[in-house]
Design a protein around this nucleic acid. Structure first.
Length: 724
DNA sequence: TACTATTTAATTTTT
DNA sequence: TTAAATAGTA
């Protein structure tokens, strides 16, 4: 057996991990140390060299992207497809098991997955139904509570109110929430994991089956596992299974959503005799960057301990810029980006990182002014768009009449004369009879409702029935195509004036093509439609389509995890912003911020700029802040201050910002504001002034933008530019 | 029902 | 400051 392709180009530590005997193995993999590589090669090693069937491996990741990448790389390495290898996210794999064993799991065969948005709506509706004051019982907090319990593996009956009335109420809301999900056959994200865990725990036969099947459990990003995911893994591993987990305790940045780094420590006690391999050689960054990162993270307590090193060059010093304010900061970043691009570098090789999304605004404005293409990560994903969710709600109702959350979403969309009052009547009927809204609708239409409302409700019901009839037997994409037209959604959005309606229609059509390219797994027992709906919930799709264009990457430090860029800017490095005010007081919160900083720094391959502003406008108030304490934790020898702070005690105004402020405070007449004047806005583009009112600082104009439609803008903030 | 005025709150995000 | 949610009005 020639093992060269699998072992070549691996360093000693990596090779040790890849070829480890069949014993529990914990790989501590620093940033840029070839973590995914080890996982991929380990899988290939087990299959190709140890001769295991792909069937006996289970590979778990946190994101769909990581799962897809791992499969691709394994197949490349082995030069053969591995269909029967289970690779997926925790949620995806849990879902798979639940579909296979829906009976044992106590679920209806056509159960639907709801995303957090659906979940929140459901909770809001629940509060309304129970006539509970939603200002005292904030839906988001209830959602958070429920998910936190599920993440810990706790059902309402496991919870004790501890003599606390508020807690008792929370528990009872959790209980009611569960009833609604049960009745509608709805499963939220946390429920997928919890159910899958209970499924194995309570079914000795199934557990034995899966334990026999999966000898090796490969886990990526192990530091991000929450309690229920860890419990599921342990259960599945049993005494015989071989867990091979890879993670980095210093990159654990998701404690706030249930991740527990402690699992990395616990692993060694739960699996006695665990082999620990540390990957510390870094192939990404310069020595300077690594040393800075090492120095910062060294301030954290209870680490497993590790020190990144490289055989590569020292590299450039980390440049620190003290900006006067956030505009100055943006100007600086853009200046350096210009240099970078002028030197012939790709824009896509640069990234601007920040702590919170709100910071992107000023940077975006600067980039637009400078005409540098950029892309902001995050934001709405395809399947999260409201028009898409509307269409999916129709499809879900077709598949499952009891899905109340979908029912409510579309019962009057497009408007068909079923107003709030009518819905309220149906709701109270449903509540009184503990039945789904669909049945309540049928019953109230024939009894309680007046003629017009009753007609509207019956029309809605027969519409759904008709669509169900007409789409049965059709190909998936034809079903979707039929539904978006027959439901009236397309016409409804066509009526929306401006570009917005157009985009919505385009998105609906895009949904049809998504259905067309969707490949149902013949091994699954469910209908292609149900499979598509699950896919939509589990994999929300890309945020933005234009990824192919060469543009500067803007994102939060959280979303930068796992990525790397030759040129990185870390902006807004000020105490209060990063570390964030809400984490600063609590030591463990501060340590998590520090890990986030570590993640940010280690994204940079060769050049790293750190910027902070002395003055920053936040929530409409000017704040003065100190440079982030993390900056001070970088040893001086790695740092070069671009502009000493003493020189920036007074505002340095660029020519651009001077003209801006003069223009914005000028009275309307000086701007040449008159009806019919063509103007240009940074975001909305060109338009024509239709109307104006008010004077001085309060003056407002109505502008009809060619692309963005009609808007009222306050002159002081709009920074309109006259165009001839 | 749609548009407008007012209030409110404001990390991080994947599934 | 601003975006989003809610309340109020035509």
């Amino acid at each position: 057996m020639d093992v060269t392709p699998i072992l070549e180009n691996l360093n000693d530590a990596q090779r040790q991990a890849v070829t480890a005997p069949a014993e529990p193995t914990l790989v501590i993999a620093g940033a840029g140390s070839g973590k995914t590589r080890v996982l991929v090669h380990r899988a290939a090693w087990l299959i190709d060299v140890e001769g295991l069937s792909p069937q006996s491996l289970l590979a778990v990741t946190f994101t769909n992207k990581a799962a897809a990448e791992m499969r691709g790389r394994i197949e490349t390495l082995l030069k053969l497809p591995v269909q029967n290898l289970w690779i997926g996210t925790f949620h995806g794999l849990a879902h798979r098991m639940l579909r296979r064993h829906w009976r044992e799991a106590g679920l209806p065969q056509n159960f639907q997955i709801i995303d957090s948005d659906d979940q929140l709506r459901l909770i809001k509706r629940l509060l309304k139904n129970l006539e509970i004051d939603d200002s005292r019982w904030v839906p988001r907090e209830i959602q958070w509570f429920i998910n936190a319990q599920k993440d810990e593996g706790l059902r309402p009956q496991h919870l004790d109110d501890e003599g606390n009335a508020d807690r008792r109420q929370m528990i009872s809301l959790y209980e009611s929430y569960e009833e609604i999900c049960e009745r509608g056959g709805l499963v939220d994200f946390a429920e997928l994991l919890l159910r899958a865990h209970e499924l194995l725990r309570d079914n000795a036969e199934l557990l034995a089956h899966y334990r026999r099947r999966f000898h090796h459990l490969l886990v990526d990003e192990f530091q991000d596992t929450n309690a229920i995911q860890y419990a599921w893994l342990r259960l599945l591993a049993g005494d015989q299974g071989v867990p091979f987990v890879v993670g980095d305790d210093d990159q654990s940045i998701y404690r706030w959503r249930g991740a527990r780094v402690e699992h990395i420590h616990r692993f060694q006690t739960d699996f006695p005799g665990t082999r620990v391999v540390k990957l510390e050689q870094n192939y990404r960054s310069t020595a300077t960057i690594l040393n800075a990162a090492n120095a910062i993270i060294a301030n954290n307590s209870s680490r497993l301990g590790k020190n990144l090193w490289t055989e590569g060059a020292e590299g450039e010093a980390i440049r620190i810029y003290s900006a006067y304010n956030e505009r100055d900061e943006a100007d600086f970043v853009i200046g350096r980006l210009r240099d970078w691009i002028d030197q012939g570098n790709a824009r896509a090789d640069s990234a601007i990182l920040y702590r919170s999304n709100a910071q992107s605004r000023v940077l975006e404005e600067g980039l637009i002014n400078a005409r540098i293409p950029y892309r902001v990560y995050g934001g709405l994903r395809f399947f999260e768009r409201s028009e898409i969710k509307d269409a999916l709600a129709y499809l879900r109702l077709i598949s499952n009449r009891d899905d109340d959350s979908s029912f409510e979403r579309i019962v009057n969309k497009p408007t068909r004369g079923i107003g709030a009052r009518t819905v309220e009547l149906m709701r109270s009927y449903a509540r009184a009879n503990a039945c789904p809204l669909w049945r309540a609708a049928g019953a109230t239409a024939s009894n309680d409702l007046n003629g017009r409302a009753a007609n509207a409700v019956s029309a809605f019901m027969s519409l759904i029935e008709r669509m169900a009839r007409e789409t049965s037997g059709l190909e998936l994409h034809d079903q979707v195509d039929h539904v978006i037209y027959a439901s009236g959604l397309v016409d409804f959005f066509k009526k929306d004036k401006g570009e917005k309606g157009e985009t919505r229609v385009e998105n609906l059509l895009e949904l049809v093509s998504a259905a067309k390219s969707f490949q149902p797994d013949p091994a699954e027992e469910m209908s292609p439609l149900d499979e598509f709906l699950s896919h939509a919930a589990l994999e929300a799709g890309e945020g933005q389509a234009e990824a192919w264009e060469d543009c500067v990457q803007l994102m939060t430090m959280h979303s930068a995890k796992g990525l790397e860029f030759p040129l990185v800017f870390m902006c807004g490095m000020e105490d209060g912003l990063f570390p964030h005010q809400r984490s600063i007081a609590d030591p463990s919160g501060l340590e998590e911020e520090r890990r986030l900083c570590y993640v940010g720094i280690t994204r940079a391959k060769q050049t790293l700029f750190i910027t902070h502003a002395e003055q920053r406008r936040l929530h409409g108030m000017d704040n003065f802040s100190q440079p982030s304490r993390f900056i001070g934790e970088i040893p001086d020898e790695h740092v070069e201050e671009i502009r000493p702070r003493v020189q920036v005690s007074r505002p340095m105004r660029s020519a651009e910002s001077q003209t801006r402020s003069r223009r914005s405070t000028a009275p309307a007449s000086e701007l040449g504001i008159r009806l019919g004047q063509r103007v240009r806005h940074k975001k909305f583009g060109d338009g024509v002034i239709l109307n104006c009112e008010g004077q001085g600082a309060h003056a407002r104009v109505e502008v009809n933008f060619e692309a963005a439609g009609t808007k009222w803008l306050v002159l002081t903030y709009a920074n309109l530019e006259a165009v001839s």
